[in-house]
C-alpha cells in the first residue's frame, strides 16, 4: 500500500545536491541494517556527519552515479555506483553498486530492480560489467541479486591484525 499516489508516479532520476540529506537518511537505514549481519558493520557515531560529505561528493563526481526513486516529494529509494577501472582484466570497466536501498513499503514493487536497470544502461554505454557488494550474511540480498542474474565472483574475508 503506497499512500494515495499510484505506483506509476514513482520516477527515477539522477540525484541532485539538494537530495543529499534525504539520500543520507536512506543510506543510514541501510548501514544500520548491516549491523545485523556482522559486528564489524557497527555504524560509527559520526556516521551522519561524514556521510553527508560522502553523499555530496558522490553526487558531484564523474566517477560515481547516484540515482533516486522519487514519489511525490519523497525520496523513497537510492542506488549509488562507483565506476571502477579494471586494469588487468577485460572488460576494462566495472559499475560497482555500493549502496542500494528502497523504503520498506515500496519494496516488492520492483523499484530495486528498476534502479539496477538504470545502472545497467549506463554500464552498457561504458561497455563494462556491473558488480555489487553487500554483507555475506544478508540472505535477502543474495536472493535478490541471484534472481536478477548476478553470481558470486569475489570473496572478501576479514580478520583483525596481529597485536
Amino acid at each position: 500500500m503506497i499512500g494515495k499516489l499510484s505506483k506509476q508516479e514513482v520516477i527515477l532520476r539522477r540525484a541532485k545536491e539538494s537530495d543529499a540529506e534525504k539520500i543520507l537518511d536512506l543510506l543510514l537505514r541501510l548501514k544500520r541494517l548491516n549491523e545485523e549481519f556482522d559486528p564489524l558493520y557497527k555504524v560509527a557515531e559520526d556516521a551522519s556527519t561524514v556521510g553527508i560529505k560522502y553523499v555530496r561528493d558522490a553526487i558531484n563526481s564523474d566517477d560515481c552515479l547516484v540515482v533516486v526513486a522519487q514519489h511525490g516529494t519523497k525520496i523513497v529509494g537510492v542506488i549509488k555506483v562507483d565506476f571502477r577501472k579494471r586494469i588487468f582484466y577485460e572488460p576494462r570497466s566495472d559499475a560497482h553498486i555500493v549502496d542500494l536501498y528502497v523504503m520498506p513499503e515500496y519494496r516488492r514493487n520492483k523499484y530495486g530492480q528498476k534502479l539496477i536497470d538504470y545502472v545497467m544502461k549506463e554500464a552498457k554505454d561504458h561497455g563494462g560489467i556491473v558488480t555489487v557488494e553487500f554483507p555475506s550474511a544478508n540472505k535477502i540480498s543474495t536472493d535478490f541479486y541471484e534472481k536478477l542474474g548476478f553470481r558470486p565472483i569475489l570473496n572478501t574475508y576479514v580478520r583483525h591484525p596481529v597485536e
Binding site: 537505514r29 541501510l30 544500520r32 541494517l33 545485523e36 523504503m103 520498506p104 513499503e105 535477502i140
Partner: peptide, 18 residues
C-alpha cells in the same frame, strides 16, 4: 508504521510484524 527506523531489522527477525 512504514517509516519506523527498526523496520529493516524487523523484516529479518519478525516478518509477520513487519
Amino acid at each position: 508504521h512504514p517509516e519506523r527506523e527498526d523496520l529493516d531489522k524487523l523484516q529479518l527477525r519478525n516478518p509477520w510484524k513487519y
